[in-house]
Computed example of a mutant assay.
Amino acid sequence: MRTALVIGTGLIGTSAAIALASRGVTVHLRDHDPARARTAAALGAGTDEAPEGRVDLAIVAVPPAHVAATLAEAMSAGLARGYLDVASVKGGPKRELEALGLDLTAYIGSHPMSGKERSGPLAATADLFEGRPWVLTPTRDTDTEVLNLALELVALCRAVPVVMDADAHDRAVALVSHTPQLVSSMVAARLEEADESAVRLCGQGIRDVTRIAASDPRMWVEILSANPGPVADVLSGVAADLDETVRALRSLQSADEDKRRDGASGVEDVLRRGNAGRARVPGKHGAAPTAYETVAVLISDQPGELARIFADAGRAGVNIEDVRIEHATGQQAGLVQLMVDPAAAPSLSASLQERGWALRTT
């Protein structure tokens, strides 16, 4: 791939453009808002000047409702050898293109499984897709050359290609992406009218659950409007679990010992099923999940402290698999939770204590 045209310079389009441009591809940028394309160009994503001839690959990075029309326009104009979209739903756009009677040999659907709570070109980064799955949904007519262009795009963005059927993709993202967004928003919505005394107690648990609730509502309305059925199906199952859990909790309030026992059993059941589901979430580098041990270290909120603790862990010869920071309310301090291989935890703890760090139990 030597040339590409990115249509839509939001977070995903601009991030892909920056990644391609940084690896020697000549990238042309187009957006319905020329100012966004100029912003992306200023960030090193390419040029907002139109290509002189046909490019190798056109990447359509517009909201799902506009994908088919944008692709149809680009394909009719013969802008590229191959055409690809990055919308978060795949079945609907494919059916719309088929209904338009377009030749789909030059088209392949795709969806990079990466994003942020922030949107727009200013949120873009070249490493947004590194190590992340990038789903490809070829049609039965997709030409091999176009598939190879898509695979090259994924490789240049340092993502991991995953080939799926379009409708299977939509059911999958309803479960692992779209429903979590709604559930996170629903939990966060409970905080809107909560007493200030309750909000002040927010810890890492509520922060983890509500992180993605900060996402742009307008963007998510567009996404959910393109995949309502599969999301509703998953939410229906969640609603059934909620109903059962509410009944179980009510039973725990009963004076009847048998009802309290049944209530405890019901709550335990959903928690255990949650354990089993969480255990299936892929771990580091997509491998089977690993149970890490946490070494929690008290840290002051001063420049250089994080660098110092990571350096001390390196001197101990221990690889940090993951890290979380929990800030202390009303204090210039917090806990850094270092997740490490269980066998390495004792030596790391001893080494950090020798270097003056205060450890805490979690």
Rank of each mutant, 00 (worst) to 15 (best):
R218F: 15
M219N: 06
W220P: 01
V221S: 07
V221K: 00
E222A: 11
L224G: 04
S225L: 04
N227I: 06
N227H: 09
P228C: 01
P228R: 10
G229E: 01
G229L: 02
V231E: 06
V231M: 02
D233T: 10
V234W: 04
L235Q: 03
L235H: 02
G237D: 08
G237V: 00
V238A: 05
V238P: 00
V238H: 02
A239P: 02
A240G: 03
D241V: 07
D241Y: 06
L242I: 14
D243R: 15
T245C: 06
V246F: 04
V246S: 10
R247P: 09
A248W: 15
A248F: 12
L249W: 08
R250G: 07
S251R: 14
S251C: 13
K259W: 10
K259C: 11
R260K: 11
R261I: 15
D262M: 11
G263V: 14
A264W: 09
S265G: 08
G266K: 11
V267A: 02
V267S: 02
D269A: 07
V270G: 06
V270H: 07
V270I: 12
R273P: 00
R273V: 06
N275Y: 15
A276G: 03
R278C: 00
R280H: 05
V281A: 06
V281Q: 00
P282G: 14
G283I: 12
K284N: 12
K284Y: 07
K284L: 15
K284A: 12
K284R: 14
K284M: 13
H285K: 14
A287D: 04
T290C: 02
A291M: 12
Y292F: 14
Y292I: 13
E293Y: 13
E293Q: 06
T294L: 07
T294A: 14
V295H: 01
A296H: 04
V297M: 01
I299T: 11
I299W: 09
I299A: 08
S300V: 13
P303F: 06
P303G: 07
G304L: 08
G304Q: 05
E305R: 13
E305W: 07
E305M: 09
L306R: 13
R308G: 05
R308D: 12
I309Q: 03
A311N: 05
D312L: 05
